[in-house]
Design a protein around this nucleic acid. Sequence first.
RNA 1: GGCGGGGUAGCCAAGUGGUAAGGCAGGGCUCUGCAAAAGCCUCAUCGUCGGUUCGAUUCCGACUCUCGCCUCCA
Length: 467
Amino acid sequence: MALKLFNTLTRSVENFSPLNPNENKVGMYCCGPTVYDYAHIGNWRTFVFADLVRRTLEFSGYDVQHVMNITDIEDKIIKRVRENKTTLREFTGKFETAFLDDLKALNCKEPHVKPRATEYIAEIISLIEKLISRGIAYKAADGSVYFSITKYQGCGCNYGQLLKLNFDEMRAGERVSSDEYEKESVADFALWKAHVPEDGDIFWPSPFGEGRPGWHIECSAMSMKVLGESFDLHLGGEDLKFPHHEDEIAQSEGATGKPFVKHWLHGAHLLVEGKKMSKSMGNYFTLRDLLEKGHTGREVRYLLLTSHYRETFNFTLDGLAGAKTALARIDECVGKLREIAGNATAAPESKLQEQFSAALADDLNISAAWGEIFKWVTETNKRLAENSLSSQVAAANLAAWEKIDSVLGIGVKMETEVPAEISALADERTAAKKAKDFKRSDAIRDELKAKGWVIEDTPKGIKLKKI
RNA sequence: GGCGGGGUAGCCAAGUGGUAAGGCAGGGCUCUGCAAAAGCCUCAUCGUCGGUUCGAUUCCGACUCUCGCCUCCA
């Protein structure tokens, strides 16, 4: 089934097809983290979304080249490096490592290429030179280099491809910082920021003088370097549409004269407990915060993957608790299938896979996909209860689950090894039960629960589950 | 002020011009000595008011509430 995706450029759902129809390759660039702090749950929604896009493309048979930048030079970074009396590399390295650890905890596939802005200074400079030579960029009196929207538009280029811009009605200037008065026009943005004393030793030499790259230019330079001047997919959070992505388009198309990106995807933000996330509201969570509360990356991933990427999602701690129960339901079902399937192998059960694929192909309607999955769980449970599943059928269902899980990345909780102390208690309970000492057996059950283990009596004997 | 999303059961969340998927919570039931984060069943008329239509939650308009972007925020 053809994959359909919303394209911010056309504001409509389109059939997805790669730039080069003769190849199966897809170049995908995702705006990565600015490594000045731990990423919060809102950031993670976007990265999990990017992971879903990648996995869906791979599921659809494409060979994806996934690129995600690491922004390791930026105003906030410089400020904190100074405050912490450390070096740029040491500071950004710490948060980059933390970011990649978190990415792994959420079972996101690691991007194939993770370019750091500071390692692409040469490419950035040459891109700026190209823009200057084409008359689209200019050096201002403050020593910085700016991109001229007017000149760009004068070349017949379109500024405002991702959203409707109405400069007359914009509240320009309200949030413009005072050091940007050297620009010819308020809409112009910095390509190269001249070195100022506060930057300390953080600067690079360039034909335009010592300084550092502006924010938008790194993405243009790195994405085009790795994926080519035109590539298939670019994604990020919805807030990046303007100015970041619009400026990326302007810089890239202004320099090359070619269409920059074929397909733009933007993920919506989330609220936490119905409110905009903020530290003062107490609803600001990093992944670490949630792990410390005893939740798992798997649960967080599941919850972030329950809603459609273009809708604002309300992330709640109740929801996170519910995620655990919902996953346990899937684990239980898949675990039983494994037992019955044994060593049998079979082609994936087609109905589940078809319904899942159809939902996903419809602009990543993952909510509908979960609906199909849980209907399958109920259906399977009924057959399990009837004892009417052959090992062949169980294996086919299992194969289907594994196939769709290559997209979900949820996996199945591994059976935790039962510690000797716990199994000793369980044995004691079984003995007490056999002796009809139910008071004693129930007391042990409570004790096990207090230790984080649930014991279930099944026709085949007891079952211990870690909670 | 400009532009763009949303308002569907206690909570989260799909969806359709013909009377609403799924998950969590709740309720009922089954297995059980009793249980279970074991299983099954059950649980809404879709922000308000108009309009179009044989028929609207789904299309149009108004209103209202809410969220986002408007220069460095995913």
